[in-house]
Structures are given as C-alpha cells and as structure tokens.
C-alpha cells in the first residue's frame, strides 16, 4: 500500500494505492490522523488505484469521519471508489456515511 498526501486550497487529498487490510490499515489511519492533528478536516480519499480494502480499512475511514465531522468542521469524502470496494462498503452500510464522487476533481470541488 502507498499513501500520498496533497494539500489543496480548501481540502487535502489522501491518495491510497494498493491493498488496505489489517496489516496496512494502521498506515492509512495514521495518515488520516496526521491530517486531523494538523487541523485538516476536509479530506478527500482518492481510491482510483486502490485494489482492495477490508473492514480494517473501513474502520480507519470511520474514525476519521467521526473526528472530521465534529463541530461541523469538515468531512471525509471518497473519490473514484472501485466497484468491488463500493459493493463491500454498501454491504457494511458505509455508503450512507460518506459522500462519494466519480473522480478526484469533483471531490476536491465539493469543498
């Protein structure tokens, strides 16, 4: 798994590549926490090149969404969610907790 963080004027984008499972999810959680700790609460998670995500990844996203939405200071949105991952998120009832966008540009434009 690879993580890249980019700062935009109105939000930060966290690009996740590869596979997120119980072994790699802590790195994703750390990246999201680091953004929150740096006062960044408007976050785009770009999943275009994400191949796989288990519930360990869902857990990291949920924690970040909870923290980011506190005091209405922001939110985590998801961009370019691959079909298989979207289906698993739907099964878990997570698609109601995150806005999703077809591409990263639209997600950044949301903020």
């Amino acid at each position: 798994m690879e993580i890249k963080v980019q700062e935009f004027k109105h939000c930060d984008m966290i690009t996740v590549k590869g596979r997120v499972d119980s072994s790699t999810a802590p790195q994703l959680a750390q990246a999201l926490e680091a953004a929150n700790d740096g006062g960044k609460y408007k976050l785009v998670v770009d999943m275009e090149n994400l191949e796989y995500m288990s519930s360990a990844g869902f857990r990291a996203l949920l924690a970040a969404q909870r923290n980011s939405k506190k005091y209405n200071r922001g939110e985590v949105v998801l961009a370019s969610v691959p079909d298989r991952i979207r289906e698993a998120l739907e099964l878990a009832g997570f698609t109601e907790l995150f806005k999703t966008f077809d591409d990263a540009l639209a997600a950044v434009g949301h903020f």
């Binding site: 519930s55 869902f58 857990r59 949920l62 969404q65 909870r66 939405k69 698993a88 099964l91 878990a92 009832g93 907790l97």
Partner: peptide
Amino acid sequence: MPNLKADLSERKIGGLGLFLMRKL
C-alpha cells in the same frame, strides 16, 4: 450484529468481519 442504520456517532465496527463473511 452491526447496526447498519446507526448514525455516525453510534456506528460500531465490531462484528463487521463476521457480518461480511455471512453476507459474502
């Protein structure tokens, strides 16, 4: 069983693995 209708603040992640196994 995870409560899939719970809102963000009440959503628990425990039990999600078993739930997904049964669904998949």
